[in-house]
Design a protein around this nucleic acid. Structure first.
Lengths: 342, 342
DNA sequence: CTGAAAGCGCTTACAG
DNA sequence: CTGAAAGCGCTTACAG
């Protein structure tokens, strides 16, 4: 007649769906449906269940839900860097769109490394997110296959492609590079240099466009390009600018593939007593923090980072809902912002 | 005699522990233990199970594991901003330490808002992470209680406290503020101003220390403080510097509570033809990107961001493992970096 | 050291 | 519109 020894408690100790259902006087299943807002539940029930949930301070167990549905309320976002503010802006915008939908975002930073990105893809796909937003198209063959085979809806951002069934939102990096060249040419610069770091695909594409426009004008000088895989930074911009102007003092126009490099160039020009834009015109890229305020104010290309993040997130939302979406490729364009440095 | 209709498949379609076990010829339980490296499994079994797992390309289902253990392989990190590079540095370091342990980090950005932080805490605690790393001590009472009651190990960073049973790693913001004041005083500045934005607790603490040191020297002038809750930025630094110098041209020393503000001040000084440090000495805070390269190079306080992230992560790891840890408070100090601007 | 049973807390698929 | 049953894929607790 002794009562059974109480089992050691497992679980989280939090209220469960069953307790909510009991309190509301319905089955668990009905409670589940009511809470999820499925229309097939009587209105009276919905109220009772919601009230019970509130009273109990019920929060659905995310793991249980994910297990039962074989899917989580999560979107993985893969970026190559968080140090480069370009990506914090994008991630911020994605977050802003997804959060209200109860979607948690997992930020994966690949540090511009293919191997790390592949590992991240593997890891995230282990508990498949409901969607992914990834940067560009340059990745390992394995990572590519994993994504394709996973069946997880994916939106690509920062670059554009016309490939079938690939959702992408971005702008043409090449065209942006061309626009810079044309601007420099138009303001009379004859010896135009290109300084690039990191050498990720997008940086290279900008260089490609820049080069093409110069060639078309018959003014391309290959020796006026400085390319280094070192991470882009203000300090590196100083260094490369000095190096270039020391060896090639005749240069009168420079396109630096990211604003941090350009800001560094501005500092170094001052230290070298080189006047900008009188002696040399300087154009950056991305319109990062500080570019509007430095001396002289930096001429640069404003990239639609917030819009890309927002649009990518909204597109993904539509795809995940199974809604019909328009064109799979969304070109958000860019804007040359002419200030004082060129 | 018709075979039973095959059930519609649910699940993820990925290989399960059971399949691994079957292939290795052991029970699921043994497979589970072998894979987790529990020492209570015979070596022969371990090999067989691991091989089977490899052949099947087995990846444990994270949701199932989380449900069974009522815990996930996740650490939540709460920061007030990602735009401020201070926190990307910290997060990066945390990531570097935790990732090799198979721990995924969830980055929560509260945007310096108490309500948002509370919502994040609630959300994360819904599927309790194995640990948390949070910024500072200023939060809503509810958030505080939720964290305490959750039983989730938590490490506080960026600030220090001597409170019992609170693990924290950081440095004394007050002392850092004092150090700046002493430096300015030592180089002969008599009219020292303080410019601060955002006004988060740490910014205020730095101001507190700065003020105290000035008062002690009998040189504190309350009207020389400009405090605004607007987000810190280079542009804001320009604006506030101009405002201050216009109204108070006698100022000969300024402490700006974050390097972006200070960099802005440097730009604006140049535009106003005010010489730094001859006319006015300028000191920033944090030693952010660009501060070592601008003109003049910025004197600032280098804060141990990577070390804080690393140390906080390692401390959390120890706590989660139930290891004995030393002092609950780890002071990492700071360093005044004297360059050209002061 | 190994295993059969039960359970974690939800949701799917099937009936009614 | 509502519900009883089964299942998602692991791990805990108990035995041996």
């Amino acid at each position: 007649m002794t009562p059974p020894t109480p089992r050691k408690t497992r679980g989280t100790g939090r209220p469960t769906l069953e307790e909510v259902a009991r309190r509301a006087g319905v089955s668990t299943i009905t409670a589940s449906r009511a809470l999820r807002g499925l229309s097939s539940v009587g209105a009276e029930y919905v109220d009772r269940v919601q009230e019970a949930a509130r009273e109990l301070n019920y929060v659905a167990n995310a793991a249980a839900r994910a297990l039962a549905r074989a899917q989580s309320d999560t979107v993985a976002v893969l970026v190559p860097s968080l140090t480069n503010n370009v990506f914090t802006d994008v991630v911020e915008a994605i977050h802003t769109v997804l959060r209200p939908h109860g979607i948690e975002i997992l930020i994966g930073n690949s540090h511009y490394l293919r191997d790390e990105e592949e590992a991240l893809v593997r890891h995230y796909l282990a508990s498949p997110p409901m969607g992914m937003i990834v940067t560009g198209f340059d990745r390992s063959e394995a990572a590519r296959r994993l994504i394709d085979a996973s069946g997880v809806p994916c939106v690509y951002m920062m670059e554009l492609t016309r490939a079938e069934n690939v959702y992408c939102v971005g702008f043409s990096q090449q065209d942006a590079g061309e626009a810079v060249a044309r601007h420099l040419l138009a303001r009379g610069c004859r010896r135009n240099a290109f300084i690039a770091a990191q050498l990720d695909p997008r940086m290279l594409q900008r260089g490609e466009g820049f080069r093409r426009a110069l060639q078309r004008a018959g003014m391309h000088e290959p020796e006026l390009e400085i390319l280094t895989p070192a991470p882009s930074s203000i300090g590196l911009g100083c260094e490369l600018f000095r190096q270039l102007l020391t060896r090639r003092p005749e240069v009168d126009g420079i396109f630096l593939g990211n604003d941090d490099l350009a800001q560094g160039a501005l500092f170094e020009a001052r230290r070298m007593n080189i006047r900008v834009p009188e002696d040399v015109a300087i154009v950056g890229f991305n319109d990062l923090a500080g570019s509007a305020d430095c001396v002289p104010r930096l001429t640069t290309v404003r990239t639609p980072r917030a819009e890309m993040g927002r649009t990518a997130a909204e597109l993904l939302l539509s795809i995940m809902r199974g809604e019909a979406v328009g064109a799979p490729m969304i070109d958000l364009g860019f804007e040359l912002v002419v200030r004082e440095s060129a």
